[in-house]
Every structure is written in structure tokens, then in C-alpha cells.
Design a protein around this nucleic acid. Structure first.
Lengths: 199, 199
DNA sequence: GTCTATACGCCGATAGAC
DNA sequence: GTCTATCGGCGTATAGAC
């Protein structure tokens, strides 16, 4: 019969509703402009009691969001590394991933690119020190070693390459650049790649 | 004797102390993590009463800071345009200006580059719609017309060029890239320029 | 123009019944 | 696991004496 397990496990969905609502609100208005009652309303739950049953405080909601995003990025990058031997192909795939996210999950990208995360999650690692971004730096380093990428400080290479990519994505997210076709994407990729490519 | 005018005009200095303290704190901890008592202490004044005598609320302090920074940037750009006929030279001078500010007034650059201004100044124009940044777009447009810059959407050109510049400056501000020599600056400039230059 | 005292609201968080 | 009620505190802002 197993009635109990049914009853007990309604929570994960509620958790996701809360996280989704919070993500949208944070991305939209910022962390500090979002109150818990905002989240309660947007999540379609009735009271703050429910919210506090799932998360022990406001920060933790943001923290879980952050970790989820970083983790999912991390597995995507592992996947990309597994499928592509060359640094150039890996970077190209990462660009595709980020453009894809910008279309399909703009709030995730807003959270990552636009929010000043250390302002409300001071104890979390800064983005650049998280696993996926360390891996990206290593990809650039590997590209240098393999002779694909010119010999510069990998962090500077990161600044060049992702300076272009991120700034373009920010403008797409802000609506300043509406384009988001395949050709547009290829064009941006090519420009970014040219800043670090050898020759 | 003129005793009165002496007595009355002690205020502008106090105002500047407040603005300077607020700039530092905002750049450091963010707007929402900075309380008025923080500002009072850092400004070396005694009570919030003094503060409220000079600014009618917290937002206005940030607003005045923002406008001052934008205005000063605006006159610098006018100056640059007056002295340099070619778009490439104008952009190069702007890059020098921004690197200079990053060294000499890092908090100003943090305010501009890192803070999410619309989160606490929702009624202010977004940076990209302010006079100096409109002028920069026009400089790029002029460069395209003159055949110096390849024929792309000026906003995309902005994303390329300042994507690199800004991301580099962010890393310098964050301490991730320590370099800030003339050669370093030239190198970054050259890379940024190459993304939009014709040929 | 400066200070003290204080009001007031909002929001994060808790206690405890059901 | 959900709800009601409410607390406590912080931070902005004001009133009013000096």
C-alpha cells in the first residue's frame, strides 16, 4: 500500500518551485530587492512557514541555486571535454552551451553573469575559483601547450575570450542585441577565438 | 571681515567626505550592505543628522555619485574627441583613461564596472544610455564610416572591444591580474582593437 | 548647522497549534 | 508538513532642542 511514502515525498516539487521562483526574482530584481514574501507568492505556496520548512534561511536559497548552477555547468564541461580533444573545439562547445543557456534559461545566465554574487553569498567561492571555471582556464592552458593558442597568461586569455562572449551575452540578455541566430553565434565565436588563437 | 561666509561654507567639504566614504563603502561591500551609520562613521561625521542635512536620503547619495562619475567621464570623452581626429586614437585614449582610473580611482571603476546600479538606482538611466557611452558608440560608428573599423553593428563592436577592456579591468580590480604596466596596457589595447579593426 | 532621541516599517525568523 | 501569529532587530528617516 505504501501510503506513507506518497505523503512524505511531496516536498521535492515544492522545493523546486521555491528555487525556480527565487531564481526568477533574484535575476529580475536582485537579491536584496526580493523579500521572502515575494518568493512565497511567486512560488505559489501559502505562507512563509512552508518556505522555512524547506530552507532554513534566505541565504540558503541563493546558495543552493548557486551550487546547482555551478554543478550543472561542471558536468556539462566534463561532458564537453570528454567529447572534444582539441581546445578550440572545447571552447566552441562551451560558447554554444552558454548561448543555449541564454536562450533557454536566461535567468540562470543572469544569475551567473549579472548578479554580484559575493554581495549576498560572501562565504561562497567566487565564480572564478569554482571547478568549471578552473577547468576552462586549464583548457586554455592546454591549448597553449598544444600550440593552438598563443602563448599568453591563461587568465588574460580568459579575459579576452570570455570578455567578448560574456559581454555579448549580457547585451543579448538586456535586449540591447536581439540577434541570436546560428550565424551570429558563429561570428561572435570567431572573433573571440581570434583574440587567443595562434597566428 | 566677512565672518559669515566663512562659517556658512564649511558644508561642501563635508558633502565630499560623505560622497567619498559612500563611494568606498559601496564599491567595497555593495549598496545594500552599507548602512547609513557605516557612512557616517567612515565620513568622520558624528551623527546621521549631519548626513540628512546634506542628502535627503540614502539613494540620493548614490545618485549624486553616479551622476558625478558619468559627468566627469563625459567631459573626458569630449576632451579626447577634441584632441584626436581618428576613431582609433580616440578609442586608444579612452582605454588609457580607463586604465588610469583603475589605478588612481579604483573605487570609481568598481562603481561603474562591478556594481549593479539599476538594482539601487532604478530611476536612473542605464549606463549604456548615458551621454559618454552613447558617444563611444558614435565613435565606433564614425570609425566604420571612415573605413577604419570593419562594418559590423556598432553595438556588437562595443561588445567586442569593451568586452575585452572591461573584463581585463575587472580582473585587475579583483587582483586576479596584477599587471598594469604600459606594455600590458598596449597589449590589451591591441587585442581589443584587432577585434574591430578593418583587415 | 549639529545633535539627541526616537518613531516607524519592513523583513527575516521563530514558536507553537493543528 | 502546513498554518497563524508574532517577535526582534535593524536601518531609514524625522522631530525638535540647541
Amino acid at each position: 500500500m505504501d501510503q506513507e511514502s506518497e505523503k512524505i515525498q511531496t516536498s521535492p516539487e515544492v522545493q523546486d518551485e521555491i528555487l525556480l521562483a527565487a531564481l526568477k526574482l533574484f535575476a529580475d530584481k536582485g537579491y536584496f530587492n526580493t523579500s521572502l514574501t515575494d518568493i512565497v507568492e511567486a512560488a505559489g505556496i501559502k505562507t512563509t512557514g512552508v518556505l522555512y520548512h524547506h530552507f532554513k534561511n534566505k541565504q540558503l536559497i541563493a546558495s543552493v541555486l548557486y551550487e546547482n548552477i555551478i554543478d550543472s555547468l561542471n558536468v556539462s564541461i566534463d561532458d564537453i571535454k570528454r567529447r572534444n580533444p582539441k581546445s578550440s573545439d572545447q571552447l566552441r562547445a562551451i560558447v554554444d552551451l552558454l548561448f543555449g543557456l541564454t536562450n533557454e534559461a536566461p535567468n540562470v545566465m543572469r544569475f551567473l553573469l549579472i548578479l554580484k554574487i559575493d554581495e549576498f553569498l560572501p562565504e561562497q567561492k567566487p565564480i572564478m575559483e569554482t571547478a568549471p571555471f578552473i577547468k576552462i582556464i586549464k583548457i586554455i592552458q592546454a591549448g597553449i601547450n598544444a600550440g593552438e593558442i598563443r602563448n599568453i597568461d591563461p587568465k588574460l586569455g580568459y579575459a579576452y575570450f570570455f570578455g567578448i562572449i560574456n559581454h555579448t551575452l549580457r547585451m543579448v540578455l538586456a535586449g540591447t542585441l536581439e540577434k541570436n541566430s546560428e550565424v551570429f553565434q558563429s561570428m561572435v565565436w570567431l572573433t573571440a577565438w581570434s583574440t587567443i588563437a595562434k597566428k
